[in-house]
Nucleic acid binder design. Structure first.
Length: 433
RNA sequence: GGUGAGGUUCCCGAGUGGCUAAAGGGAUCAGACUGUAAAUCUGACGCGCGAGCUUCGGUGGUUCGAAUCCACCCCUCACCA
């Protein structure tokens, strides 16, 4: 990585969507340690993998000696960013947003270094400088610098303005000004001269560079990262079962690991460039090797290992791999009772069985209650012999035989039942001692 | 404030009195094929093992019968003032 400049590396990874005056920015970054920021709005109690790209990019800047600021949007989160959103968003109340802000702060802190001298990272909250701001001051000092003509010309709000059926409220329209104000404030307080963000943020970022120039008389830069897309056109980071969150409480390390393992071939190498710190040369080598080889490629495996380690640490990765090995090797016989307990701890979905009333509860209900799907899906799977209990296929005729299927004597160590639905869904049922 | 257009099952979008749990597409899930890929084909897709139960912005009403008709209300958007 040392032979390339930062921008060259980012470019090679395909991580640059747009930037303000490339040449000047390149010089700026080479001349000195630059303070840069990226904002994360609290729209939930955890970030999801969509935020991983900017987060890791902050880290990349830091590795090159620059100082990253992670801005948590305590105030902007109250407003809602309209950029490229089809619809007006619901407002969350301020206590909720405040609690989310705290969670995001912790999460963001996992990725950047807070103790490395002059380029140590910092977390800032824009509520700190907007809370006390009164409307008139804001309108006179900040609002004056914005031309509504220019604002409505921005691509990011255009579809909302042109669109029949959905419009944009003044509140959301103002979002851009708030974000620009953030940049200007950070420029003043931290000498921050660069803002990075997703490509949907371009309009908001250039708003900030201009406001900084006008109010502070300083040159400021912007750089946007590409939107992560999948080759099949579906949305990245979301499965029908849910978003892939960074929080282990919301998406277990195991599920997280599986997500990356299941990435399509066509996306695996690009994702390695986006989401890992492996050099582009190494990644190209992996890709070339996979092309040579017959059968299953390595790319997804490397990706899953690297990203899981980044987000959940070595322990999270080990746990995820342990579960994966147990479930997909198909061989449960060499697992000890302790191993089963460990799998539960590691995040394999599990639930305890209650003997009482089991005889009149069909498998469909039992499995549905364990969140393995709804009744119809489970029935469908039973019909196709796609449900196995400890490796034994069950059919529709077993639907009313829950008590037999889950008889204690049938369980491994008289306690554990590993139920598999289809190829990939697993659930551990157990009798507590 | 006026005028017009709308609010259908996860999404898009048909549906104007019974044949409609509601066309079609997308997404999703399962099976075959595979590599825990992709593509393709098959099935499921409001809830329920089932009898059956609950839906079409809300509330009332007309009717043997309403997503479809009527009244009022709520919400969204556009244009005008």
């Amino acid at each position: 990585m040392n032979e390339l400049t930062l921008l060259q590396d980012l470019k090679a990874r395909g991580l640059i969507a747009q930037m303000t005056s490339e040449e000047e920015l390149e010089n700026h970054l080479n001349e000195s340690s630059v303070t840069l920021y990226c904002g994360f709005d609290p729209t939930a109690d955890s970030l999801h993998i969509g935020s991983l790209v900017p987060l890791l990019t902050l880290k990349r800047f830091q590795q090159y000696g620059h100082k990253p600021l992670a801005l948590v949007g305590g105030s902007t989160g109250l407003i809602g960013d309209p950029s490229f959103k089809a619809q007006e968003r619901k407002l969350n109340d301020d206590e909720t947003v405040a609690s989310w802000v705290n969670k995001l702060k912790e999460q963001v802190s996992l990725f950047i270094d807070f103790d490395c001298g002059t380029h140590s990272a910092e977390v800032v909250n824009n509520l700190d400088w907007t809370r006390g701001l009164d409307v008139l001051t804001f309108l006179r000092d900040v609002g004056k610098h914005f031309s509504v003509n220019q604002m409505i010309a921005k691509e990011s709000v255009k579809q909302r303005i042109d669109r029949d059926g959905d419009g944009i409220s003044f509140t959301e329209f103002t979002y851009m000004i708030l974000q620009s104000f953030d940049f200007q404030q950070l420029n003043k307080s931290h000498h921050c001269t660069l803002q990075i963000g997703g490509s949907d943020q371009w309009g908001n970022i250039t708003g900030g560079t201009e406001l900084t120039r006008r109010m502070n008389g300083n040159r400021a830069y912007g750089l946007t990262l590409p939107l992560v897309t999948k080759s099949d056109g579906t949305k990245f980071g979301k499965t029908e079962t849910g978003t892939i969150w960074l929080s282990a409480a919301k998406t277990s390390p195991y599920a997280f690991y599986q997500f990356w393992l299941q990435v399509a071939d066509a996306d695996a190498y690009q994702f390695l460039k986006y989401f890992t710190f492996l050099s582009v040369v190494e990644i190209d080598q992996i890709e070339a090797d996979d092309k040579e080889r017959q059968g299953r490629p390595e790319g997804q495996g490397v990706l899953a290992r690297e990203v899981t380690k980044l987000v959940h640490g070595e322990d999270g990765l080990v746990a995820a791999q342990r579960i994966t090995a147990a479930l997909f090797s198909g061989d449960l016989s060499d697992l000890s009772a302790d191993d089963f307990e460990q799998l539960k701890q590691d995040g394999l979905p599990s639930s305890s069985l209650v003997l009482q009333g089991m005889s009149d509860k069909p498998l469909t209900s039992l499995l549905a209650e364990a969140d393995m799907g709804n009744g119809k899906q489970i029935k469908d799977a039973l019909q196709r012999n796609a449900v196995t209990v400890n490796g034994v296929a069950k059919g529709l005729e077993d639907n009313f035989k829950s008590a037999e299927v889950f008889a204690e004597s049938e369980g491994i160590y008289n306690a554990y039942f590993l139920v598999k639905l289809g190829k990939k869904k697993h659930h551990l049922f157990y009798y507590s001692a």
